[in-house]
Design a protein around this nucleic acid. Structure first.
Lengths: 221, 221
DNA sequence: ATATTAACAATAATCGATTTTGTAAATATG
DNA sequence: CATATTTACAAAATCGATTATTGTTAATAT
């Protein structure tokens, strides 16, 4: 690191890397994030790391405890349920608005995103590297984001983005067995409902979809 | 400032002061927030101010432009409408959940908060000082927060809190004439609906309430 | 043996200074 | 005279070091 990369700032790069490390499960939930250690690891000053951690803390991925520094956010079934509920509320509404406002270009983007997702293997085969799983995660996120992308309310979209990060955090702390579920059929049904502009049906499918995600993660039968 | 106040950290104090200054309209929307100047004003180092501004930027009250520093968030009618819509979505649901889960203590708190609000003058008389208006703002906020306080989902409550800040930002950039509206009757009706545990009616009143807020601020019609 | 205080080490918070970047004035070039 | 290049300056970003806080261990007292 050390020198600024392109036009962006050091803090931006470190923040991006840290967020992705946290979301991909590189740190245990609750484990301390020592500013000086991270600074050494990234080869930057403490100010840069501190600013990065401050950003992530405000977004909820990192916990800040005055005079006790930073730590990775903790995980609990209760919190996941709360995140899912918040996602359900906001993303459902964004989905409705997106369906109501989307134009032809948006339709095409939805189809493209779904096609890409449907052709990308998730966890079926064993010996998947971390990189492969990260790639699937990105494509999955992109698919869900395309669905609501035509929502004309950026404030609402921003809330959805943040909630996605929070729920993404949990994906990586599930046991391998829990990864077997294949949402392929659900994604297909969701895409069909969206493209036929059926808001009610799309929301219904979507809510079942994320509810199931939570159930599987914590194995609620 | 200079020395740490109580058990809290310098950054926390500066952040609190800055947020309150921004929300009470001390700075023009879009005006630059120069780190070194603020540091001089608060008598702290630039690191403290920078961390404060970073926090506020992540919350949306401050804009950060890489290599161009920070500025106060800008204001537009369109954005206010988006904020109001997001508030409507989230606060309505929080209100329903709160009504469904609230206990006797919560009821008492709602009654107390409403009483306090109803007995506090807003803008009727002229020559109101800034401090008086700030006091009303706090009490008003407290009232609305009590209504949803029994909502068992902290993630949702956090979203509501942030959205409140964003919409509070607009209250202070309205012309004096727009301040005359008296929400007293609406607050009373809302309180009654909440206490009678009528979720549908409460949500209905609430949505009309905040919609009207937006209309008045930008004088729609 | 337990409680209290003192000294220490680790890390967080804060600082003042240095480097980098963006902008605008000044100068040069065609 | 218009455009390009250089220079100078202000502010942002980053750094390395200093100071403060907290938790822990050793020493002392009860």
């Amino acid at each position: 690191m050390a020198k600024r990369d392109g036009s962006s700032t050091l803090t931006e790069n470190v923040t991006k890397k840290l967020r992705s490390d946290i979301l991909s499960g590189q740190y245990e939930p609750g484990s301390p994030l020592t500013v000086s250690e991270l600074a050494k690891g990234f080869d930057v000053s403490v100010a840069v790391v501190r600013e990065s951690l401050t950003r992530l803390a405000t977004q909820g991925l990192v916990l800040q405890n005055p005079n006790h520094g930073f730590s990775v956010k903790t995980a609990s079934e209760e919190e996941l349920n709360n995140i899912i509920q918040a996602r359900s509320i906001n993303e459902s509404e964004a989905l409705r608005l997106s369906i109501a406002h989307g134009d032809l270009t948006w339709e095409s983007n939805v189809i493209a995103a779904h096609h890409k997702l449907s052709q990308t293997p998730e966890f079926k085969e064993a010996n998947r590297t971390l990189a492969v799983r990260e790639e699937w995660s990105d494509i999955h996120r992109q698919f869900h984001y395309e669905l609501i992308a035509a929502c004309p309310n950026p404030v609402l979209l921003d809330i959805c983005r943040r909630l996605w990060d929070l729920s993404e955090f949990y994906r990586h702390y599930s046991t391998p067995r829990q990864q077997v579920r294949d949402g392929r059929a659900e994604h297909k049904a969701l895409t069909d409902a969206v493209l036929s502009r059926d808001g009610d049906r799309a929301v219904e499918i979507f809510q079942a979809h994320i509810r199931l995600t939570a159930d599987i993660l914590f194995d609620n039968r």
